[in-house]
């Protein structure tokens, strides 16, 4: 999903910066608010950031024969919301832009928009939706992580086709979707599974924090406690 350094016309770089910066600023305020209100959630914030660090460093092969990496943005989005995740994503993207020449400073705004804003926002919405229907948190986090990952790449494809509608937007979009979105399908599923593993582990050890963050409802944990006596 990284748009490489210098690979967007400067007008688009500016545009995506203007879109992304207010969200990141709002995310920083949100982090302050959440950690003031629930100081015990700080370690989970670190875990969410660390999860993005790990997953976005793993370039996995896909059935289309090319390699791509997961994003890890679903966990943070479900635990802390999309704005906070945009800050975490921004940190990772700056690290990769400066040290790895992956992505870049000029395209940082665009990359934050896809990986830090659209992906997490989709994940957060999906989780809320699943919660509303009444399905379990594990299914919710799986679908949220899959959509967060996949829509990050669809966004990148859209951004590139907007900047390079050659010959038309539609044809360019089809081309970029083949490069990004098809490759990403199995990887998104893998990311969903990994996110379920870490989420269930957190839910087993510290359901109290998840309840405070309103990620799960209190009665859900009672069920888990009943199923696994001794852990709580």
């Amino acid at each position: 999903m990284h748009i490489m350094e210098g690979f967007l016309p400067w007008q688009w770089c500016l545009f995506w910066y203007l879109v992304a910066l207010p969200v990141v600023a709002y995310g920083i305020i949100q982090i302050k608010k959440i950690t003031d209100k629930h100081p015990e959630s700080k370690p989970l914030l670190a875990v969410s950031g660390a999860f993005i660090f790990i997953l976005s460093s793993l370039k996995l092969p896909s059935v289309t024969g090319s390699c791509s990496h997961p994003t890890g943005n679903g966990l943070g989005a479900v635990l802390f919301g999309p704005a906070v995740t945009s800050v975490l994503g921004a940190i990772v993207l700056v690290f990769q832009a400066l040290l790895l020449a992956h992505g870049g400073l000029t395209t940082l705004g665009a990359n934050i928009f896809s990986m830090g804003i659209v992906g997490p926002f989709a994940a957060w919405l999906v989780y809320k939706g699943v919660k509303k229907i009444g399905w379990g948190p594990s299914i919710g986090i799986f679908l949220a992580a899959v959509m967060g990952d996949w829509l990050t790449y669809v966004t990148t494809a859209t951004q590139l086709s907007l900047a390079f509608p050659v010959p038309t937007f539609g044809e360019a979009f089809a081309k970029f979707m083949i490069v990004f979105a098809y490759t990403q399908v199995p990887l998104a599923i893998a990311e969903g599974l990994l996110t379920v593993v870490i989420f269930e582990y957190i839910m087993k050890l510290r359901p109290d924090i998840l309840i405070k963050l309103k990620v799960i409802k209190p009665e859900k944990t009672e069920e888990i406690v009943e199923k696994m006596p001794g852990v709580a």
């Binding site: 999903m1 990284h2 748009i3 490489m4 690979f7 370039k59 092969p61 024969g65 090319s66 390699c67 791509s68 992956h102 990148t156 590139l160 390079f164 081309k175 970029f176 490069v179 990004f180 490759t183 990403q184």
Partner: peptide, 13 residues
């Protein structure tokens, strides 16, 4: 095979 999708997009551009 097994090239990065980011680079593939760069080539398309």
């Amino acid at each position: 095979y097994f090239g990065g999708s980011d680079d593939a997009a760069g080539e398309l551009i």
